[in-house]
Design a protein around this nucleic acid. Structure first.
Lengths: 220, 220
DNA sequence: AGAAAAATTGTCCAACTGGTTAGGTTTTGG
DNA sequence: CCAAAACCTAACCAGTTGGACAATTTTTCT
């Protein structure tokens, strides 16, 4: 029974950091370590021992804070969903299409740059059939897309962009932006770089933005 | 030491089906079962026991044909690379840009529809840092992209399309097409479908093709 | 200070996994 | 028809993993 991602229900103010100082610090360390391990080993490949080691704690101590490995995973995933929700950004009918979509693409791509691990965990979770994230996808994300579909329809009616399937429009943007996190090793290999650089991301932003805007008939 | 994907070096003719009838049939069964298991459980999550069960064989029999789990994985991955190479299709300077790119996008998307498992294994392999596929990416795939970059430059020089970064152009197409295999569960959830349907793929083909062609200034 | 609460860790264990082996059965080819 | 090759599998094993637990140390609060 997942279904609730209101991790700590921060009632308006900044997240209520519950628990003592030590607890807080250690939980954060564990989550950070877990993000790394889950990202590069997958759920089954990850071991609580390695998470503990990276976090600088004894394995039994990790189990003291999180009962099970799955509990750690759930919390990591919940944090990632939070990121997604924030990265959603605001796209409203009043916005200028070019500005709003450009900003959205840039935001998504910068997120791929800054949080590639999170993006990869999200990807593998989806590939596995989204056992944990299904509720989020079917409710929150779906609603968000339906909402934005109306915005796109509005813009199209005003002649400010072509009529394109809003769903597939977003699938395409998500894919084109997340690929720079998930498939970074492929992209780096093809580019002949060891790792992706700042300039690679800038060129990605430019190319994706240009193709998407022009491809949908959005004028600056 | 990977580096060679010429699994059975079929010297021009159709693959030489080496080994006896039984051997052939059982290896094929195992590979098929392994594809399924690796796709939905990941490398570490997959167990030889489950592969055996799905293949309808005893676990020890699986180890009779393939010494180790990694050997099975390598063969599965090698088969997937073969698919990729075939799906590359021909894009030459003499082609009409609109026709060639449309066909490529369609081919890639149909591949996502028909072989989603293969696509997902490919994805997780890349996400893991491409431990097995690195040589392929750095050699074959890189060469292919360099080659096609020239074709795009040629088209651009002729004024038949805009000047866009050829690398990122392909990254975008790969992302936009593979997402329908890798992120199928997310897409289905957002669309409110149980599974992706034929019509979903048709709409995807239409949308992606339209945006990419127009976005690059390619006229029919 | 001192007791209660929180944190830490060494040790242990049952379950599972990939892989081996030895001995049997079936298939194949002459 | 028969022997050699190929195929099949029950039983087994050593290593690993998630997790439990009890004993100890540290922190917190009065």
């Amino acid at each position: 029974m997942v279904h609730s991602f209101d991790i700590e229900d921060d009632g308006g103010a900044e997240a209520a950091p519950q628990g003592g100082r030590i607890r807080q610090r250690n939980k954060a360390r564990i989550i950070a370590a877990a993000e790394k391990v889950f990202a590069e080993r997958g759920y089954d490949g990850a071991t609580t021992a390695e998470i503990a080691e990276i976090a600088g704690l004894a394995k039994s101590n990790v189990h003291y804070y999180f009962g099970t490995k799955e509990a750690i995973y759930r919390e990591v995933v919940a944090g990632i969903v939070d990121l997604w929700l924030k990265a959603f950004g605001e796209i409203t009918a009043e916005d200028d299409p070019a500005t709003a979509i450009s900003a959205y693409i840039r935001q998504k791509l910068l997120y791929s740059r800054k949080r590639p691990l999170a993006s990869r965990i999200f990807a593998t979770e989806i590939i596995r059939g989204a056992p944990i994230l299904r509720p989020f996808l079917e409710a929150d994300l779906r609603d968000w897309v339906e909402d934005k579909a109306k915005v796109l329809a509005h813009w199209a009616a005003q002649g400010r962009m072509d009529e394109v399937s809003p769903h597939h429009f977003f699938f395409m943007i998500w894919a084109a932006t997340q690929t720079y996190a998930d498939f970074a090793s492929q992209i780096a290999a093809v580019l002949g770089h060891k790792r992706l650089r700042e300039a690679d991301f800038e060129e990605a932003i430019a190319t994706v933005t240009a193709i998407v805007l022009k491809g949908c008939g959005i004028r600056a």
